[in-house]
Amino acid sequence: MRHKKIRVLIAKPGLDGHDRGAKVVAQGLRDAGMEIIYVGLRLTPEQIAEAAIQEDVDVVGIDCLSGAHMALFPKTVSLIREKGGENILVVGGGTIPKKDIPKLREAGIAQIFGPGTPIEEIVKFIETTLGKRGNDNQD
């Protein structure tokens, strides 16, 4: 059992301005009891990684609808890892063609939540994944 609130950083890498999904997810995760750090738009992978480390978050959610995800998502994950965020769970959303998903998974994005995903599904995924890890650590 986790006792402290799950901390989630929500960010939009690149120049895409479509932030409806990111804001709705941020609000939904907050209503589910998580602590949300919404850093908003127009950020480089470098800036997101830095914020994730400084804010000491458990989860980073990144979102992109412009088609730049293949250039931005893997880079964000590797910078987070480089800066010492080995255990940070990274998830993504946006307009992501299905055929890109295996490559993104390989790069370390744990899950992609496309258009139409219920918020509950994202909440469950985060809780289960972090919960499992917590148990593994105890063993």
Binding site: G14, L15, D16, G17, R42, T44, S66, G67, A68, H69, M70, A71, L72
Partner: peptide, 21 residues
């Protein structure tokens, strides 16, 4: 997007966005 937000295609923020939207 780089044209819309006032960046040339070689700007770091334009990475991955060139010719996309």
């Amino acid at each position: 997007l780089p044209t819309q937000e006032g960046y040339d295609s070689d700007h770091p923020l334009a990475t991955g966005e060139v010719g996309k939207c």
